[in-house]
């Protein structure tokens, strides 16, 4: 239902962000995210940046897996 595109913010101008996904660029609305800066990564859906991304998927998956695999279990943090 919700194809997302993770992309890097190249430029911000009056609520519009120019984003870059592996060299493909497009202007998207940045109105729903207040504190965006060039260099940030965002999740884009249908031409709107809907969330700022704080880590790579591999890093995050690795952390989640570590919390599962370690006996102290902090996955629900």
């Amino acid at each position: 239902m919700c194809v997302g595109l993770s992309a890097k913010v190249v430029k911000i101008d009056h609520g519009t962000a120019l984003i870059d996904a592996q060299g493909a660029r497009r202007e998207v609305s940045a109105e729903l995210l207040s504190d965006l800066e060039p260099g940030d990564y965002v999740m884009v859906h249908a031409g709107i940046a809907i969330a700022k991304i704080s880590a790579s998927d591999t890093e995050e998956s690795s952390q989640v897996l570590q919390s599962i695999l370690t006996p102290t279990d902090s996955a629900q943090a």
């Binding site: 595109l5 996904a21 493909a24």
Partner: peptide, 12 residues
């Protein structure tokens, strides 16, 4: 090409 991947992920 990464740019083709980028375009494809934009448009599904």
């Amino acid at each position: 090409d990464p740019r083709v991947s980028g375009i494809c992920s934009m448009l599904g």
